[in-house]
Structure formats: structure tokens, C-alpha cells
């Protein structure tokens, strides 16, 4: 058996490839969103797709997130498999009613009469000087809603395989793309040169079809001293900090927040006896709170120290003080010191 052809891709190219593969494979897949057609998206994720697959498969929309998602629900009811893009996660709120009350409940409320196989893609997270309306991480709003799956990749390879699995999933998926790492992984040191994806293992991406099942975490670094549960941009920041300080941490990239891979989490925490949860989103009622609760319910008698949460602060994402807000190397190092002390 020959290895499938792989190519070095950054995360945008991998997402573009996933969309291209699915448009070719499944005639029911349609892509829509603000600027996604002729122009190819403000982050270029849909570049070339309209030209290749036609205007009825890939098209621009009015600036109306309620309309984009609502129209997607209707298309899904017809039998299509819409993949709308919301230009920034910060813009998703006008579409929330359509996602929360409609897409998420369609299968349940109609007892399988209608379903909503729709994948809403949206760039999220900060670290790009986007200010409070281009930097948010609203994932816990969606994990709190029953009937939606929430997926966040951390490498080009995962982004493509997860996005294909999301599009093939028969339930609505919110697919958040950490835009700080579109072009390269991020160490957390914003004043150092950006490392390109080509120097990272996760950038070798098969050109054809493959999928990574939703609901499966990845252990990105094995270790014995402490388990770190994280996702998205923070996977890479944690890896850099752990390497810098020589901490024998086991780093778990959750990849899918819901359904959560509880088995991988439980096994790791029982092994290390310590658990830190890390996300960029605001702290209070963030997904870290759910992770901490799950871990203490299952692993309380294995824990040797309180669970640590390393997160963004409970403020809007500030523009000039972005790096004081961001849960970067200093905040992480202090948390490691604390959790390893006992």
C-alpha cells in the first residue's frame, strides 16, 4: 500500500483542502458566508473554491449572521449539507437563536423528522491585535447547548481531518479555527519570530480525503508529572512553556470539546495525579470549569494538588494590553510552580 500524497500546509491551506475535498466528494455540500465567494474569504480559507466548484456551491452572503445560519438550517432541512462561515466568532451572536433554538434542537424536537447536518466554521481567539470584537473565544456558549458539537483543531493535519468529519457528521457542529495559528504555531512569546507550520509535524497533510473522528483527544506530549488539558492556540503555548521549564507534563489537546474524550482525560489524570486546564477564553463559566468539575468527579482521590485553571481574564479582550490579558508563558509558569509545589 502506498502512502497517500502529503503536502506541507498551513492551517488555512488545510482547511481549504478539506472544503475542496468535500465539495468534490459530496454534491450536497455548499459553502456560504461574507466574502467567501469570488474573494475567497478574509483569511483566504475558501480561496479558489468558487471558481472550481461554481457559484451555487460557494457563494457570498449578505452581512447577516442570523440569515446565514437560518438559511443554513433551511438548506439542511431540504437535504443539503451547508458549511457556512461566520467571518469572526465575535460576529456569531446575531445567529445564536438560529443555532441554539433551531439547529441544535431540530433532530430532537422533530423526533428525527428533520435534521441539521450543518458545520459552522469561524475563526476565533486573540493574539492578533484584533481588539474586543475580533479576538473572542466563545466556545463555552456552545458546549453549554445540548445538540451542538464543538470542535477546535490545533494543527493543519487535525484541522483538515476534523473538518471533514464535522461536515460528514449528521448533527450541527461549531468548528472554531484558532486564527493566531493559521500561519504557524505560537509559542506565546509574541516578540519572537513566528515559526512557520513547515517546521512542525502537524503540517504534513494528505492531499486527499481522510477524517479524524470527533470526540477523540490527542496526547501531544506524554509525561508523568502533571496533566494539562487544553485546545487550540494554547496547545502550542503550553508545549513551549513545558519545554522551556523542563516540566514532565502530559499535554492533551482535546480537539473536540463536546462530545468530550473523558476516557483519555481520566486515564491521564489518574496517572499524573495533577491537572491543569488551560484556555484563552474568559475564566468564569469557561470550559475549564466543566473540565475541572469532570476531573474532580472522576479523579478526586488521585489528585495531589488542587486543579489549576489558566485562562484569559474576565474582561473584554483589550486592544493595547492584549499580552497582559493573554494566558501566556508567565501565567503558565506560575501555575506550574503552584501545582507542582505540593
Amino acid at each position: 500500500m502506498t502512502e497517500p500524497a502529503t503536502k506541507t500546509m498551513n492551517m488555512i491551506e488545510a482547511i481549504n483542502s478539506a472544503l475542496d475535498v468535500m465539495l468534490a466528494k459530496d454534491p450536497e455540500v455548499v459553502i456560504m458566508g461574507e466574502d467567501v465567494g469570488y474573494f475567497g474569504g478574509v483569511f483566504r480559507a475558501t480561496a479558489g473554491l468558487q471558481k472550481k466548484h461554481g457559484k451555487t456551491r460557494v457563494f457570498d452572503t449578505p452581512i447577516s449572521e442570523c440569515g446565514i445560519i437560518g438559511v443554513g438550517v433551511g438548506m439542511a432541512a431540504y437535504g443539503l449539507r451547508p458549511v457556512p462561515e461566520i467571518q469572526f466568532a465575535d460576529y456569531i451572536y446575531p445567529g445564536l437563536d438560529q443555532l441554539v433554538s433551531e439547529a441544535a434542537r431540530m433532530r430532537y424536537r422533530s423526533a428525527n423528522d428533520f435534521i441539521c447536518p450543518m458545520t459552522v466554521r469561524s475563526p476565533f481567539g486573540g493574539g492578533i491585535f484584533g481588539g474586543q470584537t475580533h479576538s473572542q473565544s466563545p466556545e463555552s456558549l456552545f458546549t453549554h447547548v445540548c445538540g451542538i458539537k464543538t470542535v477546535i483543531p490545533a494543527t493543519p493535519y487535525d484541522a483538515k481531518g476534523l473538518l471533514i468529519a464535522a461536515i460528514e457528521d449528521n448533527d450541527p457542529v461549531v468548528f472554531f479555527e484558532p486564527k493566531r495559528i493559521y500561519n504557524g504555531p505560537f509559542s506565546g512569546y509574541y516578540d519572537r519570530p513566528v515559526e512557520p507550520w513547515s517546521k512542525h509535524d502537524g503540517s504534513a497533510v494528505p492531499e486527499g480525503y481522510y477524517r479524524i473522528d470527533l470526540g477523540k483527544a490527542a496526547v501531544v506530549r506524554e509525561g508523568q508529572a502533571v496533566t494539562v488539558l487544553t485546545y487550540g492556540t494554547m496547545v502550542h503555548v503550553v508545549k513551549a512553556v513545558v519545554a522551556e521549564h523542563g516540566i514532565d507534563a502530559e499535554i492533551i489537546d482535546l480537539r473536540t470539546l463536546l462530545p468530550l474524550d473523558i476516557e483519555t482525560i481520566e486515564a491521564s489524570v489518574k496517572k499524573t495525579g495533577r491537572c491543569m486546564v488551560v484556555h484563552e477564553a474568559t475564566r468564569t463559566s469557561g470550559f475549564g470549569a466543566e473540565l475541572a468539575a469532570q476531573v474532580q468527579e472522576r479523579c478526586f482521590y488521585h489528585l495531589e494538588a488542587p486543579i489549576e485553571r489558566v485562562t484569559g481574564f474576565d474582561t473584554p479582550y483589550p486592544h493595547s494590553l492584549e499580552w497582559a490579558y493573554f494566558p501566556g508563558p508567565v501565567r503558565l509558569a506560575r501555575a506550574f510552580d503552584k501545582i507542582m509545589k505540593d
Partner: peptide, 25 residues
């Protein structure tokens, strides 16, 4: 007959999406 929602007028964009899908096919 589409599934009725208690949240009003959500069916409006959905009907448009259904019609757009029908036209596109």
C-alpha cells in the same frame, strides 16, 4: 410541514434557505 418552533419567525430564513436549495438543485 416543517417542525414548528416556539421562537417566532425563525422559520423565515429557514424557508428562504429551503427555497434557495430547491432553486440551486
Amino acid at each position: 410541514f416543517f417542525s414548528i418552533s416556539g421562537n417566532l419567525t425563525t422559520q423565515y430564513p429557514q424557508a428562504v434557505g429551503w427555497a434557495m436549495a430547491s432553486a440551486s438543485r
